[in-house]
């Protein structure tokens, strides 16, 4: 056993410790109502995720090799909000390639969810599993609903 063999391990360990310490101190600095709104959106989003998304994308967001894509560190989740919202509303049936791996299971549309539910679950996904992208608002989801014909 040699400690010198694991400088990267040590580096990440200390890095992880720093992040943990920072995360613990942050809420005290920014204890605003926006933060509370975000927190409850994430909490509601987690419930939606558990009921609707978890069966395929897994509790840790890692997905299933060759079938269901991971929701971690991918531009599908962290990038353009419009594309992400449309995937939830309309479903998805294209091959996805992430980090050299292909995923091919079809995703069903989830337009039966409310704007708030979709905003919550996408905010949860964009802020969980090590992701940290901006929140999504219900009004942003509403824009992509088809206009109802009377």
């Amino acid at each position: 056993m040699s400690l010198l063999k694991y400088p990267i391990l040590i580096f990440f360990f200390i890095l992880g410790l720093n992040i943990t310490l920072q995360a613990q101190t942050k809420p005290k600095v920014n204890g605003k109502s926006g933060q509370i709104g975000l927190k409850s959106s994430i909490a509601r989003g987690k419930v939606v995720y558990t009921n609707i998304c978890l069966a395929c994308h897994m509790a840790d967001g890692n997905g299933v090799p060759t079938m269901n894509p991971p929701l971690i560190k991918t531009s599908y989740v962290l990038g353009d909000k419009t594309a992400l919202i449309k995937i939830v509303l309309n479903g998805f049936s294209e091959d996805v390639e992430i980090n050299g791996q292909k995923f091919s299971n079809n995703m069903a549309p989830h337009s039966d969810l409310t704007d708030v539910q979709i905003a919550d679950v996408l905010t949860y996904v964009r802020k969980s599993f090590g992701n940290n992208a901006s929140a999504i608002k219900p009004s942003e989801v509403k824009k992509f609903r088809p206009v109802k014909k009377i």
């Binding site: 056993m1 040699s2 400690l3 063999k5 694991y6 391990l9 200390i14």
Partner: peptide, 18 residues
């Protein structure tokens, strides 16, 4: 105390990896 803890953890983790 944290430094010693970190050191011990590293020792344990490296031992396990080995």
């Amino acid at each position: 105390l944290p430094l010693v803890t970190i050191f011990l953890l590293i020792v344990i983790i490296s031992w396990r990896i080995d």
